[in-house]
Computed example of a mutant assay.
Amino acid sequence: MKIAIVILNWNGQQLLEKFLPTVVNFSTEATVYVADNASTDTSITFISENFPTVKIIQNMVNGGYAKGYNDALKNLSEAIFVLLNSDVQVTKNWLEPIISEFKNEPNLVAAQPKILDYKNKEYFEYAGAAGGFIDKYGYPFCRGRIFNSLEKDLRQYNDITEIFWASGACFFVKAKAFWEAGGFDEDYFAHQEEIDLCWRMQSQGGKIKYVGTSTVYHVGGATLETSNPKKTFYNFRNSLLNLLKNVNGLQAFVILFIRMVLDGVAAFQFLFQGKPKHFLAIIKAHIGFYKLIPKFLQKRKKYASNLKFYHIKSIVYQYFIRNNKNFNEL
Rank of each mutant, 00 (worst) to 15 (best):
residue 316 V to H: 04
residue 281 A to D: 11
residue 285 A to G: 10
residue 310 Y to H: 11
residue 285 A to W: 06
residue 264 G to K: 01
residue 288 G to N: 12
residue 256 L to P: 08
residue 279 F to A: 11
residue 309 F to Y: 15
residue 312 I to M: 04
residue 308 K to W: 00
residue 282 I to D: 07
residue 312 I to C: 15
residue 283 I to K: 09
residue 290 Y to E: 07
residue 306 N to G: 00
residue 284 K to D: 13
residue 272 F to T: 15
residue 307 L to T: 00
residue 257 F to W: 15
residue 295 K to C: 09
residue 305 S to E: 07
residue 286 H to G: 04
residue 264 G to H: 05
residue 289 F to S: 06
residue 278 H to W: 00
residue 292 L to K: 15
residue 304 A to I: 06
residue 318 Q to H: 13
residue 273 Q to E: 15
residue 320 F to A: 01
residue 272 F to Q: 09
residue 273 Q to T: 00
residue 259 R to H: 02
residue 267 A to F: 06
residue 271 L to Y: 14
residue 303 Y to I: 10
residue 300 R to C: 05
residue 257 F to A: 15
residue 302 K to N: 02
residue 266 A to S: 10
residue 259 R to S: 04
residue 304 A to W: 04
residue 278 H to I: 01
residue 308 K to C: 03
residue 258 I to V: 14
residue 309 F to L: 05
residue 270 F to A: 08
residue 277 K to D: 15
residue 290 Y to L: 14
residue 305 S to V: 08
residue 302 K to T: 07
residue 310 Y to L: 10
residue 299 K to E: 10
residue 301 K to L: 04
residue 290 Y to A: 13
residue 299 K to P: 00
residue 285 A to R: 01
residue 318 Q to A: 07
residue 310 Y to T: 04
residue 298 Q to R: 13
residue 275 K to V: 00
residue 297 L to F: 12
residue 295 K to P: 03
residue 315 I to P: 02
residue 296 F to C: 06
residue 311 H to M: 05
residue 292 L to N: 14
residue 285 A to Q: 12
residue 286 H to F: 13
residue 272 F to C: 07
residue 283 I to G: 05
residue 319 Y to D: 14
residue 306 N to M: 00
residue 317 Y to E: 09
residue 258 I to L: 14
residue 292 L to H: 11
residue 317 Y to W: 11
residue 318 Q to V: 01
residue 264 G to D: 02
residue 319 Y to W: 12
residue 312 I to S: 09
residue 278 H to D: 13
residue 295 K to S: 12
residue 274 G to A: 09
residue 293 I to K: 04
residue 264 G to C: 09
residue 267 A to C: 08
residue 259 R to W: 01
residue 258 I to Q: 09
residue 279 F to D: 10
residue 314 S to R: 09
residue 293 I to Y: 01
residue 285 A to Y: 09
residue 316 V to Q: 05
residue 319 Y to Q: 06
residue 274 G to C: 01
residue 292 L to T: 12
residue 292 L to W: 06
residue 295 K to Y: 11
residue 266 A to D: 05
residue 290 Y to C: 14
residue 262 L to M: 11
residue 319 Y to N: 04
residue 310 Y to I: 03
residue 297 L to A: 04
residue 293 I to D: 02
residue 272 F to D: 14
residue 283 I to Y: 03
residue 257 F to Y: 15
